[in-house]
Design a protein around this nucleic acid. Structure first.
Lengths: 345, 345
DNA sequence: TATTCTCATACAAACGTTTGCATTTGTATG
DNA sequence: CATACAAATGCAAACGTTTGTATGAGAATA
């Protein structure tokens, strides 16, 4: 029942020439008579001939495809990364196989395994799990690999990251600049990014001559609902005299804003809040949320660029780059107070 | 420099047996001596042999891969669809090549073209463009195809949709039930889904004995910022006596809520608002937004299921299904008033 | 007329796998 | 001892390309 697609052999048969001549004719080789060329091209068009992709891949030992292991695909930041990756791939003639791992180490492993069978020319990876065993195998197989967002330091690869520590530092420093003295930190799971942001927080606090207070540092494991960390932020807000909060996620920050309304604390007057990522919700929510830009699209573009360059230049590069995508604090209403910023309207 | 991966031939050579025996040994065929089997399996493990995916594909004429053409990947609904698709693929041993078209017809066409070269076993498609010429070619090539979210009626394929008209009807009816009499409609681009939702709106309005008022129906082309349609909703809100709004997107609905605050209209007391999709923001915003559930994940699962079933049963099915994923109105604060619902707290 | 040259085309190998069929070896049966 | 049969393995084709090398015909040169 299934119609077999036209092959160069079929075309050759109809024209009483060999497949190789057809192949060369379609490649516009100078070796073939222009008459024959014309006939071949015509027939190919008539039957809408498309070269078989798999055969080409086998022959050339390249699939023109990359694999993207991404923790979450329902996520503004990772969605932007994916869009960036795809945009660059598209303009370079590559396709993307996407493996959302949903932060599940098993999915991560099975994704990597699938990619070891030669179905992709390279891999883009935001490493979440603990098992780097399989990544090691990828590298041993000489499959080009670029980390984005998070990286395992122990591998010699390109990396595309933001400077999480600096970003955390800048966010906290901004709170200090608008007059906050007792600043809380609330983060999601204790992953490497959040640890670095916390380091930045600590640095800024220390520099301002404030002692670091452990009860002001909270990790929330709230995976329920929309990951707003409502309960944990409530706990944090019960600390007497707290007048600033740095949340490692815009969602957590919005959770804080919500809780503030309940206990009748005014933002930014009584307490300043800053989030992280510059998600749509930070623009839309009221009060609008100050945050740190996390440029996912640019990160995706750059990561794909490095990967595809490496694929095209297969001799192992000796200088692996760590590209830091610049970030900046975006000031909105939730921190609009103090010396350098007008009061919120 | 590039290390060639181990092949079945390499293993055979080392063991002084032919590739075919190795192949059979690894497949645990009864045709091969258990001694040999053991040796082969051991060596394969030692070298971490992985069968070449491309060779397998060429041989079996199947890539165990599907293509997903999706309008937008930074989008809660489409992200959920993608997650559903990927989940089902994962559990069926398939992979997904993702082509975000960004609503660009050229991207759509180039995606379809790429998929015609035999690199995928089937295609999942949310059709946005006007050009169905290429889709026709896909079908002529007997490449299994399933539409999701939107469908071109002219093709004989499976479809997985929501009943947009009914959803629009239910949303509008809900507004009527909570006492709205002069109900505005605000939608994004005039695509097929929005047209159907509008039809539902009109039906509900008519049934309630209200005349349809064209000035209450607005399409917004606002692609700026976060697509909140702020200007257009402002226009809509200037209509005297308006006391209900159905927005075809949660983002548009939030835009309405924002504008309401500016002109000091109270929601839900003065005007009830309902959105569409049940995005995170509808839960988080204040007032929380009533909306219509649009179950992306289920849609993705079902679409992948139909596609993979069709791939596995290649004889053209005579009964193409149109699966309607059920939707329901989710009542929150923005419509919490009237007879059957308690007033908002 | 014989040699060389050019042009156009065909042949065959290669990519890595599976699989139908043939071959080899050994053992049991008549 | 010859035949049959089973078990284990090898051979070769096939999937659809590209590409290096061989082959053929015709024309130009000596």
């Amino acid at each position: 029942m299934k119609k077999k697609p036209i092959t160069i052999l079929d075309i050759g048969e109809e024209l009483n020439i060999s497949a190789s001549t057809v192949s060369r004719a379609l490649a516009d080789s100078s070796l073939v008579n222009s008459e024959t060329k014309k006939k071949v091209v015509e027939l190919a068009k008539k039957y809408n001939y498309q070269p078989n992709f798999t055969a080409l891949s086998l022959q050339s030992n390249s699939t023109k495809t990359i694999g993207v292991l991404i923790p979450n695909v329902v996520h503004e930041f990772f969605g932007l990364v994916l869009r960036g990756v795809e945009d660059h791939c598209h303009s370079s003639g590559y396709s993307c196989i996407v493996y959302p791992t949903n932060e599940d180490p098993d999915r991560e492993i099975s994704g990597i395994k699938a990619l070891m069978t030669g179905r992709v020319d390279g891999v883009l990876l935001s490493f979440r799990g603990k098992t780097n065993l399989h990544i090691k195998q990828l590298i041993e197989r000489n499959i080009p690999l670029v980390f984005f967002d998070t990286a395992d330091e122990s591998f010699a690869t390109h990396r595309v990251l933001i400077d999480d520590k600096k970003a955390g530092y800048l966010a906290t420093k901004h709170l200090i600049e608008v007059g906050s003295k007792k600043i809380g930190f609330i983060g999601g799971s204790e992953n490497i990014n959040n640890q670095l942001r916390l380091e930045g927080y600590k640095q800024a606090v220390s520099e301002a001559g404030i002692t670091i207070d452990p009860q002001l540092i909270v990790y929330s494991l709230d995976k329920s609902q929309d990951e707003m960390g409502l309960e944990d932020s409530e706990k944090l807000l019960s600390v007497k005299g707290i007048d600033g909060i740095f949340a490692t996620t815009d969602m957590f920050a919005v959770g804080v804003l919500k809780n503030l309304k309940k206990i009748n604390l005014k933002c930014p007057e009584d307490i300043a809040v800053i989030g992280f990522s510059n998600w749509a919700i930070s623009r839309v929510y009221e009060p609008s949320l100050s945050t740190v830009e996390q440029p996912g699209y640019e990160m995706g573009i750059k990561a794909a660029e490095l990967l595809i360059d490496q694929i095209k230049n297969p001799e192992t590069p000796s200088d692996f780059k760590t590209v830091l995508i610049p970030t900046e604090v975006i000031v909105r209403t939730s921190t609009a107070r103090g010396n350098n910023v007008a009061h919120s309207t």
